[in-house]
């Protein structure tokens, strides 16, 4: 076990991301403006937030597939970019340093899917809200 960890995105930056996510803004421009490490941090944060929201909205029915099924499968993505590397190397944390342009495009696509899914979860709960408020009043 190696104890080194890295947290590359600061709370203020995450606040910015949340703002854009909740406002439904596109994160593409922000991704372009960040350095490599921060882009990886952004993807991780958006994923964690989306998953958390998914668990709240979908409860026991939540599964990661719900989010990932909308993303382009890795082999397909690699083929479209003409990449000859092994599939296991096509990860943001690996390739961002070797092929930042390609990795960023992939991250942008993933983040877009996650943001859209997040909006779906918000929509689900908005529909549930009157019912939840009623339950609270009863209790």
């Amino acid at each position: 076990m190696f104890t080194q960890t890295t947290e590359t995105l600061r709370p203020g930056d995450k606040l910015d991301i949340l703002y854009r996510l909740f406002q439904g803004d596109d994160l593409g421009q922000l991704i372009d403006a960040l350095d490599n490490n921060s882009v990886v941090g952004l993807q991780k944060f958006v994923w964690e937030t989306t998953a958390e929201f998914g668990i709240i909205a979908r409860r026991k029915n939540f599964s990661r597939r719900e989010i990932t099924r909308k993303m382009t499968p890795t082999p397909q993505y690699q083929k479209s970019r003409g990449c000859n590397q092994h599939t296991y190397q096509c990860k943001a944390t690996e390739c961002i340093h070797f092929n930042p342009k390609c990795a960023r495009e992939k991250i942008k696509e993933h983040v877009k899917v996650m943001a859209e899914t997040l909006q779906e979860y918000i929509k689900i709960e908005r529909q549930n809200e009157p019912f939840e408020e009623m339950l609270q009043e009863i209790h």
Partner: peptide
């Protein structure tokens, strides 16, 4: 801006201290 259930009890986690 978003339903209360997402932030009401514990807020939204930015980091262990935020």
């Amino acid at each position: 801006p978003i339903p209360k259930i997402f932030f009401q009890d514990k807020g939204i986690h930015l980091s262990p201290n935020f």
